[in-house]
Design a protein around this nucleic acid. Structure first.
Lengths: 194, 194
DNA sequence: CGTCTATTTGAATGTACTCAAAAGCGGTGG
DNA sequence: CCACCGCTTTTGAGTACATTCAAATAGACG
């Protein structure tokens, strides 16, 4: 199938699969198409899937106790996303996962994942590596939030996701880098003048 | 052995081991005793071990480009620590890992870990779960840094590590929550008065 | 006891926020 | 087709949280 080429490529970076294993893996995936602003997971729901973005872009976000929205992650084409807290604990989650634009995804349910781990144990390795990389990225982002200015964080994001940055609403970028939309607007103006 | 009771308990929370597997796991561990301020890993070195803290406390920290120090993590008794970036990539790392006080640890080398995964695959599961939990914690800390004030972050850390907070130097707490020692000092004074 | 590091204090400054409101922009229906 | 609605983005003024720089004080260790 066309729609599974990307995910097979993504997995194959870390583990080698024979045809049978690929087929089995693919058989566990559920394709889904989302419209702009369609919500795939809401706060309070239990996250029962790992989600792979085949095309388009998702974002994970949450509200703090002051009802402020915070973008936790962007997931463009070729990325995985999920509410890790809820996915692990199978308790009601805190994140929303929403399509930023028309998006196609492949979902792997927690049950299917467990089955996959039993049938093809090297997938345990794959997901460990995936999470390791994600952990390093969050660690770095934490340090960036402490040591870089908002301008620098914006420039860094622009470099990391150059093909995405122009498709994102400004208020969502502001939220990701950790400033208010108002400040972000003024900041960008200032940057253009220099 | 006395010194391995804690780590076996720590592992057994997530996977079940028989006596033979326990013994094999333990045979791969290297015990080490560290003095206060002794450095276990320096920036620029490749991190070749996952480290389990048996007693005492370690901290991971790094310097940003303005030579400011940032505490990335504390690892008190029963916790794991390592420079994840370097451990994964086997490239020179960015973190220091240092003993805050007299500390005993058990080290598992990357090679031993790979061997362990081959011989006892369920350890792949154990470390995946370990990293998943760590990922969730970093995600939450990122959100906390964006949505809580410094005072609130301090109170939160105090609740999370009540037995540790009084043993930590104040400048290291300040660094962990992301403020200067000067501001932290004034902040604490203010909090005491109220 | 002296030295080195950690902590505190004070004053001036800066980065980012809040509140309030205007302007821009895209979609929808009359 | 354009007028209106809702949402995003911008602008301005005042404010708060936290920083920088400089220096004094307190503690810890040999």
């Amino acid at each position: 199938m066309e729609s599974t080429a990307l995910i097979i490529q993504n997995v194959s970076v870390h583990i080698n699969l024979d045809e049978k294993e690929k087929e089995f893996f693919i058989s566990l995936l559920e394709p889904l198409t989302l419209k702009r602003k369609q919500i795939l997971l809401a706060q309070g729901q239990v996250c029962r899937h790992s989600i792979f973005v085949n095309s388009g872009c998702l974002r994970g976000y949450m509200y703090d106790r002051n009802a402020m929205e915070h973008v936790v992650s962007f997931a463009p084409q070729g990325w995985w996303i999920g509410d890790m807290y809820s996915l692990i604990s199978q308790k009601p989650g805190i994140q929303y996962i929403e399509a930023i634009e028309e998006t196609t995804v492949l979902r792997l349910s927690k049950d299917s994942q467990e089955l996959l781990f039993r049938e093809v144990p090297k997938f345990e390795r794959f997901f460990r590596i995936l999470i390791e990389n994600s952990l390093v990225a969050y660690q770095q982002r934490l340090i960036d939030n402490l040591s870089l200015t908002a301008e620098e964080r914006y420039l860094k994001l622009s470099k990391q996701l150059p093909s995405l940055i122009n498709r994102l609403p400004l208020n969502q970028i502001a939220s990701y880098i950790g400033v208010t939309p108002q400040y972000f607007s003024k900041m960008r103006k200032r940057m253009l003048l220099q």
